[in-house]
Design a protein around this nucleic acid. Structure first.
Lengths: 126, 126, 126, 126
DNA sequence: GTGGTCTAGACCACT
DNA sequence: GTGGTCTAGACCACC
């Protein structure tokens, strides 16, 4: 789930998880998400940490608060789609530049991709 | 070169750079690498920070030290090739699992790869 | 406690002391050990030196860290028992090979051991 | 033979080796030992390093120099016997105190000694 | 208060 | 000049 000892702060890891849940429709567009306490309990973290993750998420526009009612996923589905697209592009650019830094050429990278993913029946532990 | 404001410690960024230099043959197999002080000066960091990076690299087996003589790239080129291979695989697995967490399917991922990399003339800022 | 003028780096001497404390149960299995600053104060060394010792001990698997919570003795008591056993064997092998390098024969070594230890009422300064 | 990267300075390692050679009669009492250059060549070290080892050995009384004739093992065989005895005792005391620091009791130490040495057909790599 | 990182500057032995 | 160690002091995010 999340890793206490990673270089990445826990609240950022939580942000990523919740972002993914929104993108994947686990928390549907415009709907209420579980309370801070609930989410914290579920994730096994301190409520303060979860609170911080949600605040940051609100700053980014993915969720918004109603005073006492709770927090809701944004109703603007374009924001969500855009976010998904950007994340995907980021991931690809990161991967490709990383491989190029290892002095792989474009044809080699395409080969690697085919070898490790396209033609692989099992490519990850999960 | 390296980013002071990143979440990632400088000494780890330095490790990555030097590792890449070894993999790319900038520091050839079995050859002496510049002194700690030289490298630190060149990178604009404190010698201690560079020392830490190199010390960790030594633990990982990529370089070795002769006290009072200098530090040398390992003479075992298999280690280097293996390292390169592992890094490449790590990058690909990270990318693919990241995309799958965004609920992209395999055909979609292959499409993205083709769209953003294979068929793109310019795909990165550099 | 520790010897500043020894050829052996202080942080290694500290590692040995703490390792012994873990093996002897002074720091019990799975329990929190004192903070870096506390230990440094107690040992009369700079916190950075103690940090290095503890960091190396963590690499060796004897302790682990929770960021912002503290450091803990590993919960795997087999590791500790194994460590104790290995250290004991190392000590014996070192001693015996050292004596053999002085061209003592096996019976002579056994005699020495009996003379200086088994049949001695006081064999060390302490 | 000797280890360039040990915590122990090379010249001390060389001293130990030569001391052992004297104790074992490889360099007999009162006889000339090989020249600095010869010894350095044989050991694969810089003549300066070997020179330092021999100077220290001279300070300790195990060898002495004739201006231009060379270096000789002391003619006082009691010195050598005494040295051997002291080294043996040091080794034993070091081993026993080390084991006691690991909280082994006297009977346990005797058991270990029997197990790993007395009753062992093969106890060292050589 | 916790571990972790970084800088600055100094010292050391060995070659 | 080389790697290595140590101190002192500061800063950081996280809890």
């Amino acid at each position: 789930m999340w890793d206490l000892n990673s270089d990445i702060p826990i609240y950022i890891q939580l942000m990523d998880i919740i972002t993914n849940n929104i993108i994947n429709g686990v928390y549907p567009v415009g709907e209420k998400i579980p309370s801070v306490r609930e989410l914290a309990l579920e994730a096994g973290v301190n409520p303060n940490t979860m609170q911080k993750a949600l605040s940051k998420l609100e700053e980014s526009g993915l969720i918004y608060s109603y005073r006492t009612t709770g927090k809701f996923v944004t109703e603007d589905s374009t924001i969500i789609r855009q976010r998904k697209k950007n994340l995907a592009k980021d991931i690809l650019v990161t991967a490709v530049t990383g491989l190029e830094d290892l002095s792989f050429t474009k044809p080699e990278i395409i080969d690697l991709f085919n070898e490790y993913y396209v033609n692989a029946s099992h490519y990850r532990k999960g």
